[in-house]
């Protein structure tokens, strides 16, 4: 993990050269896999994610069946080799189970679940390489995979993080709100907020925060993610169109 850096932002420039409003370099590919009904590969900086959707299909185990709508189940997983430093023990831990739960709920709210009673829509998110903001990148990819699978949805879902990082401005100590946390910012930053958002309907369906923020800083963050959220949405659209326009 390295040692705590003296500053994460100096005169408005972050450690990797970004401004507070900048996302890392993004790449989205729709229809990445062959077997899945829908799939997506996404890169955000050096975070790499694959998402796949199967369904609607029969529910296993049967007792989980919902009789009036589809059951949307999301499984978030980090590959054993995805993290820096030590190998991650494969399989679900408490962290990934919690992420799977809130992600399932976020995705349920974007899907027209009533179109497919008594079925399951299974979403699998695999983090191939982790460099922070993996849960939000997973959700952005999952939304593309759902659309690619032909699942009826109210909107797309774009997910991204913002946070508060420390540093200096004109030689004086400063705390700055910035979007898309990378690994050092995630490790050492003062606050971290994960959000998932419907870009057309303007609804938030995931919000997880830890750290310390003033009310104004939170509002600033919400305002600041608007533009990058539109940028993500545009890339999602392009990826889906590209699959069908060749």
């Amino acid at each position: 993990m390295g040692d705590k850096p003296e500053t994460l932002i100096t005169d408005g420039v972050r450690l990797d050269g970004r401004k507070p409003k900048d996302m890392r370099a993004l790449k989205i590919v729709a229809g990445f896999l062959e077997n899945a009904d829908g799939s997506c590969y996404l890169e955000c900086g050096s975070t790499k994610v694959v998402a796949a959707v199967y369904g609607p299909r029969q529910v296993h185990p049967r007792h989980a069946t919902l009789f009036d709508r589809a059951l949307v189940r999301c499984k978030y997983d980090m590959a054993a080799f995805s993290t820096d430093g030590n190998r991650k023990r494969p399989g679900p831990d408490r962290r990934s189970r919690e992420i799977s739960k809130v992600s399932s709920e976020a995705l349920s709210s974007v899907v027209f679940t009533e179109a497919y009673p008594r079925t399951a829509i299974d979403v699998f998110i695999e983090i191939i390489q982790a460099d922070a903001s993996t849960r939000v990148n997973g959700l952005t990819a999952a939304s593309v995979a759902l659309a690619d699978a032909g699942i009826p949805m109210r909107d797309m879902l774009v997910a991204l993080s913002f946070g508060k990082i420390y540093g200096t401005q004109d030689g004086k100590p400063a705390e700055v709100v910035a979007v898309d946390m990378d690994k050092p910012e995630d490790n050492w930053g003062l606050a971290d907020v994960a959000l998932a958002y419907m870009p057309n309907l303007e609804r938030f369906v995931l919000c997880q925060m830890d750290g310390r923020l003033t009310h104004d800083e939170f509002r600033d963050g919400l305002e600041m993610i608007k533009k990058p959220a539109q940028e993500l949405y545009k890339l999602q659209k392009e990826a889906l169109r590209k699959k069908y326009k060749g």
Partner: peptide, 8 residues
Amino acid sequence: QVVVPGET
């Protein structure tokens, strides 16, 4: 036109 969910 190819459209995605949510598009007006």
